[in-house]
Design a protein around this nucleic acid. Structure first.
Lengths: 262, 262
DNA sequence: CCAGGTCCATACCTTCAGGGTATCGCGGAC
DNA sequence: GTCCGCGATACCCTGAAGGTATGGACCTGG
């Protein structure tokens, strides 16, 4: 009748480990219990979720589809748990460099007694914090995966090249992307990437290269030994306000209004 | 640890009724059980959700906030079930003009957690939807091909002639079929027929002629510029409830009961 | 002012799902 | 053939969810 979130959580664990024994260990339950629960889930759903064999466990197509629904459901449930009991609080997330104070102040002033918090996000968790309820709304830099989210664009801002003050491009009024050919770009992209803007800039200062950042970010993190130069022909960075699509609270609606006007 | 969706569903029921007894009734459980479950939920969440008094129950602010999260969570959970293919869903088909709401409401109220859907059919697909499983039962207008179907007659209703308000027959108390001789009948029958009642009526309004419809259909689609007149000597339209003969589910049996009583 | 009604809580019982341990059966690998 | 990894089965125990009966607080009409 009702879906049992415990079983769903067990299912996700097995789907991730593709091994009942290790999944059971991760869940801190005995393996036979896990086997039984998964079987019970399959019975309830009248669908086979795994192909079991003594040499491995794999997801069936139905299992794969369930997994896609199960994860967001679990995060939504934990978001609910996180939010409940927390005193009347409204939390605004923001990416580094974005100035949220005016909007936050305005919301707070209109609702005395409401605790308005802010949470600085990173490139990696800017979407996650919305889904798991750590923030009610968040200022994000597009593009982000928009599944389960709603958003309104707020403004665009140009990107700049950040280089050492001694760099050949330092002092220029502006550059074109072609001027950067041959420069090593310091990016957050995957494997050996940098987790924060500070680290990126540190790297540029130490070892040269060029970091490409939205203007406000570059200004926010400006340092003596680095300068930034506008790049004329690169697509601007879009800043948007995003929130979970299943949440429709008056406060969120009001903040969206405020953010668009500020 | 895990949120219990059953308790959440109970919570929403109480929040909607603001009365433990009636909520329990709607959920088909005993009132003390509901009280205990809500209390357990409050303990688990460490938050008081309701203010109880012998003269009424109200949501606390925390309860109100939980309600905002609880509804979408339940929706997402049932969406998951539906997509996995287990959706506990019962779908009732109906021909235009027939009012199914009371019966549907009654079934839904007797089975909390059951998703009861309705599907409007047309003259062409009213049987097809039964066979292909789009509906579990359907209100049909006889005659229909009954192969593979079982049905119970529900009621008869007179047919009326729908004519422009300016027509010579408009305003009459009733007419006989013979009065219609010479009139062009606008019918849905095959090739160049009209696919919907709306189209038929549009045609009558534009180009004259007469449409013969069951009374309820004529009422449902009534327009300012058209009037309907009962036809005394034409066989009445029979409305029946039909279902696939190879399907014998308790829900179908129950709905048949309900439909006959309503 | 008391009788009855409404509403939620408490007490107590029964059932069953979920957790645990011990052990089996099946394949693949050495 | 033997061993090992992996999931399934068998059996027990506990606790949570369901039920009925009843209590206690509060309102309301006579």
């Amino acid at each position: 009748m009702d879906l049992d979130l415990r079983k769903v959580r067990y299912f996700v664990a097995v789907a991730e480990h593709l091994n009942f024994g290790r999944a059971a260990e991760a869940l801190h339950i005995a393996q036979p219990v896990l086997s039984r629960q998964i079987r019970a889930l399959e019975t309830e759903l009248k669908v086979q979720l795994f192909d079991r064999s003594s040499k491995g466990t794999t997801l069936t197509p139905a299992g794969l589809r369930l997994l896609e629904d199960a994860r967001p459901l679990l995060t939504q449930a934990s978001a609910l748990l996180r939010r409940v009991g927390v005193a009347d609080t409204f939390t605004v997330g923001f990416m580094p460099g974005l100035i949220v104070t005016p909007a936050v102040r305005l919301l707070a002033s209109r609702h005395p007694g409401l605790q308005v918090d802010v949470l600085r996000t990173t490139w990696e968790d800017q979407v996650e914090v919305i889904h798991d309820g750590r923030v009610d709304v968040s200022y994000v830099r597009l593009p982000v995966p928009l599944d389960g989210l709603r958003h309104v664009p707020l403004f665009d801002e140009p990107r700049v090249a950040v280089v050492p003050a001694t760099h050949r491009l330092a002092g220029k009024e502006s550059v074109l992307e072609v001027d950067l050919t041959g420069e090593r770009r310091v990016q957050h992209t995957d494997p050996p990437g940098f987790r924060s803007v500070e680290e990126k800039l540190e790297h540029v200062a130490m070892h040269g290269g060029v970091a490409i950042l939205p203007l406000s970010t570059a200004i926010f993190y400006s340092r003596e030994d680095l300068v930034h130069v506008p790049i004329e022909d690169i697509a601007p960075n879009e800043v948007a306000l995003a929130w979970a699509e299943h949440r429709h609270t008056p406060l969120i609606a009001e903040f969206i209004e405020i953010a668009q006007q500020v």
